[in-house]
Protein backbone atom coordinates (compact mmCIF):
# COMPACT_ATOMS: atom_id res chain seq x y z
CA UNK A 1 0.00 0.00 0.00
CA UNK A 2 2.87 2.35 0.80
CA UNK A 3 4.29 1.56 -2.61
CA UNK A 4 1.03 2.51 -4.37
CA UNK A 5 1.03 5.80 -2.54
CA UNK A 6 4.69 6.42 -3.37
CA UNK A 7 3.95 5.67 -7.00
CA UNK A 8 1.05 8.12 -6.94
CA UNK A 9 3.39 10.82 -5.60
CA UNK A 10 5.93 10.08 -8.32
CA UNK A 11 3.26 10.23 -11.02
CA UNK A 12 2.03 13.48 -9.53
CA UNK A 13 5.42 15.16 -9.79
CA UNK A 14 6.26 13.75 -13.21
CA UNK A 15 5.51 16.99 -15.10
CA UNK A 16 7.72 19.13 -12.89
CA UNK A 17 10.44 16.49 -12.94
CA UNK A 18 10.51 16.50 -16.72
CA UNK A 19 10.49 20.29 -16.84
CA UNK A 20 13.48 20.48 -14.53
CA UNK A 21 15.29 17.73 -16.40
CA UNK A 22 14.73 19.68 -19.60
CA UNK A 23 16.01 22.82 -17.90
CA UNK A 24 19.21 21.08 -16.80
CA UNK A 25 19.77 19.71 -20.30
CA UNK A 26 19.05 23.15 -21.70
CA UNK A 27 21.67 24.74 -19.47
CA UNK A 28 24.20 22.14 -20.60
CA UNK A 29 23.41 22.77 -24.25
CA UNK A 30 23.66 26.49 -23.64
CA UNK A 31 27.10 25.95 -22.10
CA UNK A 32 28.17 23.98 -25.14
CA UNK A 33 27.61 27.14 -27.18
CA UNK A 34 29.64 29.16 -24.66
CA UNK A 35 32.75 26.96 -24.53
CA UNK A 36 34.61 29.20 -26.97
CA UNK A 37 33.79 32.54 -25.36
CA UNK A 38 33.91 31.52 -21.67
CA UNK A 39 36.56 28.91 -21.86
CA UNK A 40 36.07 25.20 -21.31
CA UNK A 41 36.90 25.11 -17.62
CA UNK A 42 34.41 27.80 -16.64
CA UNK A 43 31.69 26.09 -18.65
CA UNK A 44 32.51 22.72 -17.04
CA UNK A 45 32.14 24.21 -13.58
CA UNK A 46 28.88 25.91 -14.43
CA UNK A 47 27.39 22.53 -15.42
CA UNK A 48 27.48 21.66 -11.73
CA UNK A 49 25.62 24.80 -10.58
CA UNK A 50 22.15 23.17 -10.86
CA UNK A 51 23.22 20.96 -7.92
CA UNK A 52 22.96 23.96 -5.60
CA UNK A 53 19.56 24.93 -6.91
CA UNK A 54 18.36 21.31 -6.59
CA UNK A 55 19.49 21.19 -2.98
CA UNK A 56 17.29 24.14 -2.05
CA UNK A 57 14.45 23.01 -4.28
CA UNK A 58 14.42 19.53 -2.72
CA UNK A 59 14.04 20.95 0.79
CA UNK A 60 10.68 22.46 -0.19
CA UNK A 61 9.34 19.60 -2.26
CA UNK A 62 7.82 17.35 0.41
CA UNK A 63 6.09 20.39 1.84
CA UNK A 64 4.88 21.43 -1.61
CA UNK A 65 3.44 17.97 -2.22
CA UNK A 66 1.59 18.14 1.10
CA UNK A 67 0.32 21.65 0.55
CA UNK A 68 -1.00 20.66 -2.86
CA UNK A 69 -3.33 18.08 -1.28
CA UNK A 70 -5.01 20.82 0.72
CA UNK A 71 -4.93 23.42 -2.00
CA UNK A 72 -6.41 21.12 -4.63
CA UNK A 73 -8.96 19.74 -2.18
CA UNK A 74 -7.73 16.16 -2.43
CA UNK A 75 -6.70 15.93 1.24
CA UNK A 76 -10.08 14.64 2.51
CA UNK A 77 -10.05 11.84 -0.05
CA UNK A 78 -6.45 10.92 0.65
CA UNK A 79 -7.01 10.93 4.39
CA UNK A 80 -10.19 8.87 4.10
CA UNK A 81 -8.15 5.99 2.68
CA UNK A 82 -7.04 3.40 5.24
CA UNK A 83 -3.51 4.80 5.35
CA UNK A 84 -1.51 5.71 8.41
CA UNK A 85 -0.32 9.29 8.70
CA UNK A 86 3.24 8.01 8.61
CA UNK A 87 2.86 6.39 5.23
CA UNK A 88 1.34 9.57 3.77
CA UNK A 89 4.17 11.71 5.17
CA UNK A 90 6.81 9.11 4.30
CA UNK A 91 5.64 8.66 0.70
CA UNK A 92 5.92 12.39 0.09
CA UNK A 93 9.38 12.60 1.66
CA UNK A 94 10.58 9.64 -0.33
CA UNK A 95 9.12 10.97 -3.58
CA UNK A 96 10.74 14.38 -3.02
CA UNK A 97 14.01 12.64 -2.24
CA UNK A 98 13.76 10.45 -5.33
CA UNK A 99 13.23 13.53 -7.46
CA UNK A 100 16.30 15.20 -5.96
CA UNK A 101 18.40 12.07 -6.35
CA UNK A 102 17.58 11.57 -10.01
CA UNK A 103 17.87 15.22 -10.99
CA UNK A 104 21.22 15.50 -9.19
CA UNK A 105 22.37 12.30 -10.81
CA UNK A 106 21.33 13.65 -14.20
CA UNK A 107 23.25 16.87 -13.56
CA UNK A 108 26.38 14.92 -12.64
CA UNK A 109 26.02 12.61 -15.63
CA UNK A 110 25.65 15.51 -18.06
CA UNK A 111 28.62 17.19 -16.43
CA UNK A 112 30.55 13.95 -16.84
CA UNK A 113 29.62 13.85 -20.51
CA UNK A 114 30.84 17.40 -20.86
CA UNK A 115 34.08 16.30 -19.29
CA UNK A 116 34.35 13.13 -21.35
CA UNK A 117 33.90 14.97 -24.62
CA UNK A 118 36.56 17.58 -23.92
CA UNK A 119 38.64 16.72 -27.02
CA UNK A 120 35.63 17.56 -29.18
CA UNK A 121 35.91 21.20 -28.05
CA UNK A 122 39.60 21.25 -28.92
CA UNK A 123 40.59 21.08 -25.27
CA UNK A 124 43.23 18.77 -24.01
CA UNK A 125 41.71 16.11 -21.79
CA UNK A 126 42.06 17.52 -18.32
CA UNK A 127 43.51 15.06 -15.83
CA UNK A 128 41.72 14.80 -12.51
CA UNK A 129 43.97 15.56 -9.59
CA UNK A 130 45.28 12.48 -7.78
CA UNK A 131 43.67 13.69 -4.59
CA UNK A 132 40.30 12.96 -6.13
CA UNK A 133 40.92 9.25 -5.90
CA UNK A 134 42.38 9.03 -2.44
CA UNK A 135 40.48 6.93 0.03
CA UNK A 136 39.93 9.90 2.29
CA UNK A 137 38.40 12.00 -0.47
CA UNK A 138 36.02 9.24 -1.44
CA UNK A 139 35.01 8.85 2.18
CA UNK A 140 34.60 12.58 2.45
CA UNK A 141 32.36 12.71 -0.61
CA UNK A 142 30.20 9.84 0.63
CA UNK A 143 29.85 11.27 4.12
CA UNK A 144 29.02 14.79 2.92
CA UNK A 145 26.62 13.32 0.38
CA UNK A 146 24.81 11.54 3.19
CA UNK A 147 24.81 14.74 5.21
CA UNK A 148 23.21 16.62 2.33
CA UNK A 149 20.69 13.85 1.72
CA UNK A 150 19.66 13.68 5.36
CA UNK A 151 19.65 17.45 5.58
CA UNK A 152 17.20 17.59 2.69
CA UNK A 153 14.93 14.97 4.22
CA UNK A 154 15.06 16.56 7.63
CA UNK A 155 14.33 20.05 6.30
CA UNK A 156 11.57 18.65 4.12
CA UNK A 157 10.07 17.03 7.19
CA UNK A 158 10.26 20.24 9.22
CA UNK A 159 8.44 22.20 6.51
CA UNK A 160 5.87 19.44 6.24
CA UNK A 161 5.27 19.35 9.98
CA UNK A 162 5.01 23.13 10.16
CA UNK A 163 2.46 23.11 7.34
CA UNK A 164 0.40 20.37 8.99
CA UNK A 165 0.43 22.21 12.30
CA UNK A 166 -1.03 25.15 10.42
CA UNK A 167 -3.82 22.79 9.36
CA UNK A 168 -4.84 21.94 12.92
CA UNK A 169 -6.59 25.30 13.21
CA UNK A 170 -9.41 26.65 11.07
CA UNK A 171 -8.10 30.21 10.92
CA UNK A 172 -4.71 31.87 10.55
CA UNK A 173 -3.31 28.68 8.98
CA UNK A 174 -0.50 30.51 7.23
CA UNK A 175 0.48 32.43 10.34
CA UNK A 176 0.59 29.26 12.43
CA UNK A 177 2.62 27.47 9.75
CA UNK A 178 5.07 30.36 9.62
CA UNK A 179 5.50 30.50 13.40
CA UNK A 180 5.91 26.72 13.52
CA UNK A 181 8.54 26.79 10.79
CA UNK A 182 10.62 29.30 12.74
CA UNK A 183 10.15 27.43 16.00
CA UNK A 184 10.85 24.01 14.53
CA UNK A 185 14.03 25.16 12.82
CA UNK A 186 15.20 26.67 16.07
CA UNK A 187 14.34 23.53 18.03
CA UNK A 188 16.01 21.24 15.50
CA UNK A 189 19.17 23.34 15.50
CA UNK A 190 19.11 23.47 19.28
CA UNK A 191 18.53 19.74 19.43
CA UNK A 192 21.42 19.18 17.05
CA UNK A 193 23.64 21.30 19.26
CA UNK A 194 22.65 19.47 22.44
CA UNK A 195 23.08 16.06 20.84
CA UNK A 196 26.46 16.94 19.33
CA UNK A 197 27.72 18.10 22.71
CA UNK A 198 26.46 14.90 24.23
CA UNK A 199 28.28 12.87 21.60
CA UNK A 200 31.34 15.08 21.88
CA UNK A 201 31.67 14.07 25.49
CA UNK A 202 31.59 10.47 24.38
CA UNK A 203 33.96 10.77 21.43
CA UNK A 204 36.12 13.77 22.19
CA UNK A 205 35.20 15.54 18.92
CA UNK A 206 33.26 18.78 18.93
CA UNK A 207 32.78 21.65 16.46
CA UNK A 208 35.11 23.75 18.61
CA UNK A 209 38.00 21.29 18.25
CA UNK A 210 37.43 21.25 14.51
CA UNK A 211 37.66 25.01 14.15
CA UNK A 212 40.84 24.98 16.23
CA UNK A 213 42.49 22.21 14.27
CA UNK A 214 40.84 21.74 10.92
CA UNK A 215 42.29 18.33 10.25
CA UNK A 216 40.48 16.12 7.82
CA UNK A 217 39.98 13.20 10.18
CA UNK A 218 38.29 15.33 12.81
CA UNK A 219 35.97 16.86 10.21
CA UNK A 220 35.13 13.42 8.89
CA UNK A 221 34.31 12.11 12.37
CA UNK A 222 32.20 15.17 13.03
CA UNK A 223 30.26 14.70 9.80
CA UNK A 224 29.71 11.03 10.60
CA UNK A 225 28.41 11.98 14.02
CA UNK A 226 26.13 14.53 12.41
CA UNK A 227 24.56 11.76 10.38
CA UNK A 228 23.67 9.89 13.56
CA UNK A 229 22.31 13.06 15.13
CA UNK A 230 20.16 13.89 12.12
CA UNK A 231 18.84 10.33 12.05
CA UNK A 232 17.78 10.66 15.68
CA UNK A 233 16.11 14.00 15.00
CA UNK A 234 14.47 12.64 11.89
CA UNK A 235 13.05 9.63 13.75
CA UNK A 236 11.59 11.87 16.44
CA UNK A 237 10.11 14.41 14.03
CA UNK A 238 8.77 11.67 11.76
CA UNK A 239 6.83 10.08 14.60
CA UNK A 240 5.32 13.47 15.46
CA UNK A 241 4.54 14.42 11.84
CA UNK A 242 2.81 11.14 11.07
CA UNK A 243 0.74 11.49 14.20
CA UNK A 244 -0.28 15.05 13.32
CA UNK A 245 -1.16 13.92 9.79
CA UNK A 246 -3.32 11.07 11.05
CA UNK A 247 -4.94 12.54 14.13
CA UNK A 248 -4.62 16.27 14.33
CA UNK A 249 -4.66 17.91 10.92
CA UNK A 250 -8.08 18.89 9.57
CA UNK A 251 -9.13 18.50 6.00
Amino acid sequence: MFFQLYRKELNGLRNIFLTLLGLIMGIDLFLVTRVRSWGYWTALHVTLIPLIFLLIWAMFRAFMLTREEWKEGTAPFLRSLPLSGWSIVGAKLLAAFTEWLFLSLATVIFSGLFYATAPLWGVEWPALPDLFFSEQTVQFIVVSGLNFALGIILTGLIFQLAYLLGRTVNRFNALVSFACTVLLFYLTAKGNDILSRLFANLSGISPETISLSPNANAVLTYLKLNIVIMLIEFAFLFVVTGWVMEKKAES
Binding site: N15, G73, T74, F77
Partner: peptide, 10 residues
Protein backbone atom coordinates in the same frame (compact mmCIF):
# COMPACT_ATOMS: atom_id res chain seq x y z
CA UNK B 1 -17.05 11.24 -0.62
CA UNK B 2 -16.41 14.91 0.10
CA UNK B 3 -18.29 17.71 -1.58
CA UNK B 4 -15.73 19.37 -3.84
CA UNK B 5 -12.78 18.55 -6.10
CA UNK B 6 -12.22 15.22 -4.53
CA UNK B 7 -9.73 13.53 -6.79
CA UNK B 8 -6.39 14.10 -8.49
CA UNK B 9 -6.89 16.09 -11.66
CA UNK B 10 -3.99 14.48 -13.48
Amino acid sequence: LPEVNTFYNW
